[in-house]
Computed example of a mutant assay.
Amino acid sequence: MPLIELKNICRRYKNGQVFINALEDINLSIEEGEFVSIMGPSGSGKSTLLNILGCLDRPTSGTYEIAGRHVEKMSDNMLADIRNQLLGFVFQSFHLLPDLNSIENVELPLIYRGLSGSARRKRATAALEAVGLKERIYHRPSQLSGGEQQRVAIARAIAGDPKLLLADEPTGALDSKNSESIMAIFQDLNTKRGITVIQVTHEKSVAEYGHTIFHLKDGKIEHIENVANVTI
């Protein structure tokens, strides 16, 4: 059974008296353990698709199944549970709280799981060590480089042991050296931990770290590209 299965997904917005089809008839299936990239020009629907995959938005029509559960008609509370139990998110802008240090930022979403303080600290420490920040756990965001801040964000995303990691332009604010470092971490999480990764990117070199690239145009999947030589 696929981890992710979308059938005939459409997302329509109303802008004044005009309806805009952000996504139209999207069908895709992603197996557990895959590394998938989504590419497309501005306005192609890739961020809308990622928001639906992340249970942050609902499709106008169609069905979405994740880990055997249909989510398109779930209540807001049920969707929040799915996000908390199964998903990890990494964004271009890091979204770290400036008054908290690295380990406190990583611990924050674990509070909503009801974990004890010691359990949160243990998981957060392990996650920061996994992204190479063992020596920076008590530094605040202002004391970290952009690449280090993104690694804290990744640690926060994986501390809850998600099945699926969703990344929206994860290297968009980074230079090429830090971009390569972040993508190496994603590959390690995918190959060694078995975490399924879905990323949105406009950079072909970044997209090619994935096994498969979904190319979107005008809200539709234009074509699917299999990456022959996965970067290691």
Score class of each variant (00 low, 15 high):
residue 80 A to C: 14
residue 94 F to G: 05
residue 85 Q to N: 14
residue 137 I to K: 02
residue 82 I to F: 07
residue 126 A to N: 07
residue 108 L to F: 14
residue 136 R to H: 12
residue 136 R to K: 11
residue 133 L to M: 08
residue 67 A to H: 04
residue 78 M to G: 03
residue 101 N to F: 02
residue 67 A to D: 14
residue 139 H to E: 04
residue 72 E to P: 11
residue 112 Y to T: 09
residue 107 E to T: 03
residue 70 H to P: 09
residue 134 K to T: 14
residue 135 E to C: 01
residue 73 K to L: 11
residue 77 N to Q: 15
residue 111 I to S: 12
residue 77 N to V: 06
residue 128 L to W: 01
residue 90 V to Y: 11
residue 79 L to G: 06
residue 140 R to Y: 02
residue 127 A to C: 10
residue 99 D to Q: 14
residue 105 N to Q: 00
residue 100 L to A: 09
residue 124 A to Q: 09
residue 87 L to C: 08
residue 89 F to L: 03
residue 85 Q to S: 12
residue 88 G to R: 11
residue 129 E to T: 13
residue 68 G to S: 08
residue 97 L to F: 13
residue 102 S to W: 12
residue 119 A to E: 15
residue 112 Y to D: 11
residue 83 R to H: 08
residue 96 L to W: 05
residue 87 L to A: 05
residue 115 L to D: 00
residue 81 D to F: 01
residue 130 A to K: 14
residue 99 D to R: 10
residue 79 L to W: 02
residue 76 D to F: 04
residue 129 E to M: 12
residue 119 A to C: 08
residue 109 P to W: 07
residue 136 R to T: 01
residue 119 A to W: 00
residue 83 R to T: 10
residue 118 S to V: 12
residue 133 L to T: 01
residue 72 E to V: 10
residue 111 I to R: 13
residue 92 Q to F: 12
residue 132 G to Q: 08
residue 131 V to W: 10
residue 137 I to A: 02
residue 132 G to K: 09
residue 127 A to M: 11
residue 72 E to T: 00
residue 115 L to F: 04
residue 131 V to I: 11
residue 73 K to R: 13
residue 99 D to L: 10
residue 126 A to T: 10
residue 100 L to V: 06
residue 99 D to S: 13
residue 133 L to C: 02
residue 76 D to R: 06
residue 116 S to K: 09
residue 109 P to D: 07
residue 72 E to Y: 07
residue 111 I to V: 15
residue 113 R to L: 15
residue 99 D to Y: 13
residue 121 R to G: 00
residue 122 K to T: 13
residue 99 D to M: 13
residue 68 G to R: 04
residue 131 V to P: 06
residue 121 R to A: 11
residue 114 G to P: 11
residue 93 S to P: 01
residue 96 L to G: 01
residue 88 G to Y: 08
residue 80 A to T: 14
residue 137 I to E: 01
residue 70 H to Y: 06
residue 109 P to A: 07
residue 139 H to C: 03
residue 138 Y to T: 02
residue 96 L to S: 06
residue 139 H to S: 04
residue 138 Y to H: 13
residue 95 H to C: 03
residue 128 L to E: 01
residue 92 Q to N: 08
residue 101 N to E: 04
residue 99 D to W: 05
residue 138 Y to I: 02
residue 103 I to F: 03
residue 139 H to L: 01
residue 72 E to R: 00
residue 81 D to C: 06
residue 109 P to K: 06
residue 116 S to V: 04
residue 118 S to Y: 03
residue 80 A to P: 12
residue 119 A to L: 10
residue 120 R to L: 05
residue 129 E to A: 14
residue 101 N to R: 05
residue 87 L to E: 03
residue 108 L to G: 08
residue 79 L to K: 09
residue 131 V to Y: 04
residue 88 G to W: 09
residue 82 I to T: 10
residue 95 H to Y: 14
residue 89 F to G: 01
residue 140 R to M: 00
residue 121 R to S: 13
residue 101 N to C: 08
residue 93 S to I: 12
residue 112 Y to R: 10
residue 76 D to G: 00
residue 102 S to I: 11
